[in-house]
Design a protein around this nucleic acid. Structure first.
Lengths: 129, 129
DNA sequence: ACAGAAATACGAAAACATTCGTAGCAAATA
DNA sequence: TATTTGCTACGAATGTTTTCGTATTTCTGT
């Protein structure tokens, strides 16, 4: 049986993944500069964190040139599912409806968003008419 | 101007809140017993955590009788909004649709759930026709 | 070639979060 | 009353995450 690995990036690991999901591969400096506006930590902090992530298997690292290049090994989707699942079992205790409505409530939705969601709901309708 | 407090219960604090949201006020023992099935920690651990939470302003505590009674000071909704907001700005980068669909995907939805969500969507339609 | 800038490696401090042991009371009970 | 039971208080060990300082190496420009 296959061991299901559970990806649980920590808070700051997640911030780094955000950057890398947007544009990978990237150097430590690129990642660090992309985050500098929001957070206030030194370069070596980012470096160390990314090294740790590589150790954990969260990032791949290309060390061929002196300036290493990092690429995420986990997809945004994997993490989303993982964290969502946790929330469903915890905060939202299985009530997807409540989570969904909370999400709807907390953000201004574009017409596109609504369209997508509605289309998605229809697929559910088809399955259980 | 009012300082917007951000509620960020930790993992185990959240478990305790789950219990208290269900039925408050409650004693440490009640909370502990409600959680015993899932977790495997001692009574004093629960006690200590709840004391810390009271210190942080997450719980109110009635010490009139020897056996203290605890009540949550943050609502489930507040926490949900807080965490959801964080996810929107982070993991889901403003795409509520993706978050919602992820949630829908990860759970089997009852017909009721679907009804609720659809009704909710209609309210949004009314607002932005 | 040399000084300075820029990169990695690494250990360890600092900050949290979690857990439990033990002490000290108060209440119930034998 | 003496014992046991159940509660709070509190300090301290453990574990994890975050942060940074310092050493070392490589590259760059003069």
């Amino acid at each position: 049986m296959k061991k299901k690995k559970t990806f649980r990036p920590t808070e700051s690991e997640l911030e780094i993944l955000q950057v890398l999901w947007n544009k990978a591969p990237a150097t430590v400096r690129q990642v660090h500069e992309a985050m500098e506006h929001n957070r206030d930590t030194g370069y070596t902090t980012t470096l160390k964190t990314m090294q740790i992530m590589a150790g954990k298997g969260l990032l791949a690292r290309d060390t061929r040139s002196r300036t290493h290049l990092y690429t995420p090994l986990v997809s945004r989707e994997e993490c989303q599912q993982d964290i969502l699942g946790k929330m469903m079992n915890g905060l939202f205790k299985g009530s997807a409806a409540r989570l969904v409505m909370g999400a709807l409530d907390s953000e201004k939705l574009s017409g596109e968003d609504l369209q997508e969601i509605r289309a998605f709901l229809e697929k559910f309708d088809d399955k259980k008419p």
